[in-house]
Simulated assay, not measured.
Amino acid sequence: MDVPTATVAATPRPLQAIRALAVGSLVALVALDVTWDLALAQIKPSGLWTALKVLPLCAAVPGMLRHRMYTYRWMALLVWLYFTEGVVRAWVERGLNQWLAGAEILLCLLLFAACGIHVRERLGWRKSP
């Protein structure tokens, strides 16, 4: 079920900014992981197989663009797998790969924060009694 256009237009600006941050960090995370594993990784033969790890992220893009609460909720949990990968690679690798792992960590934190704030705002937890 899609969100009606009138509902999206009536969405407060801060929530629209949070949605844009969530979608932007998700798309940037996909682009980073694909580029890193296919073009920049030192181990080329496994690049295609490791690039498949972005498929769950790609599956979330349509739901996030349609502002589906369920997608924001499961993405807030799934992103921790990518965060863990970034931490491990930042610890183990050196040079450019270490910087790319740091970028992955940053994007994961941004995505988690945006999803968490989005869910909180949509559920109305900020409203005073």
Rank of each mutant, 00 (worst) to 15 (best):
32 L>E: 14
15 L>A: 04
46 S>A: 13
3 V>S: 09
102 G>T: 11
11 T>G: 02
94 R>E: 15
112 F>L: 14
55 L>M: 13
127 K>Q: 12
13 R>T: 15
44 K>P: 02
101 A>S: 15
93 E>R: 05
11 T>N: 02
75 M>L: 14
64 M>K: 00
78 L>V: 03
116 G>M: 06
69 M>Y: 00
80 W>S: 11
65 L>H: 00
47 G>I: 05
14 P>C: 07
15 L>S: 02
114 A>F: 02
99 W>T: 14
26 L>I: 02
121 E>K: 05
54 V>K: 06
64 M>E: 02
17 A>L: 15
24 G>N: 03
30 V>P: 05
71 T>K: 01
9 A>G: 12
29 L>R: 02
11 T>F: 00
43 I>D: 13
68 R>W: 01
78 L>N: 00
52 L>W: 06
17 A>Y: 02
32 L>W: 11
105 I>H: 07
67 H>K: 03
61 V>T: 09
103 A>R: 05
66 R>C: 01
32 L>Y: 11
76 A>M: 10
96 L>G: 10
9 A>E: 15
17 A>V: 08
21 L>F: 04
119 V>R: 01
103 A>F: 07
48 L>G: 09
7 T>V: 15
72 Y>H: 13
53 K>L: 13
77 L>V: 14
1 M>V: 13
12 P>D: 15
5 T>S: 15
91 W>H: 07
3 V>D: 03
9 A>H: 15
83 F>S: 01
26 L>Y: 01
91 W>K: 04
114 A>M: 10
5 T>D: 15
61 V>D: 03
86 G>C: 05
11 T>H: 01
124 G>A: 09
59 A>M: 14
33 D>K: 10
87 V>F: 06
88 V>S: 08
71 T>A: 13
100 L>F: 13
114 A>V: 06
68 R>N: 01
87 V>Q: 05
52 L>N: 06
92 V>Q: 11
124 G>P: 12
71 T>C: 02
36 W>C: 04
89 R>Q: 08
30 V>W: 08
46 S>R: 12
116 G>I: 03
72 Y>M: 10
127 K>V: 15
76 A>H: 01
116 G>E: 10
68 R>A: 05
115 C>Q: 03
100 L>T: 08
69 M>K: 02
118 H>V: 03
125 W>G: 09
27 V>M: 07
92 V>N: 08
47 G>K: 05
125 W>I: 12
95 G>W: 12
78 L>H: 00
125 W>E: 11
35 T>P: 01
46 S>F: 08
88 V>K: 07
7 T>L: 08
10 A>L: 09
6 A>W: 03
96 L>D: 15
74 W>L: 03
50 T>M: 12
126 R>V: 13
22 A>K: 01
19 R>H: 15
87 V>W: 05
90 A>V: 05
58 C>K: 05
128 S>C: 06
54 V>P: 04
17 A>I: 06
90 A>E: 08
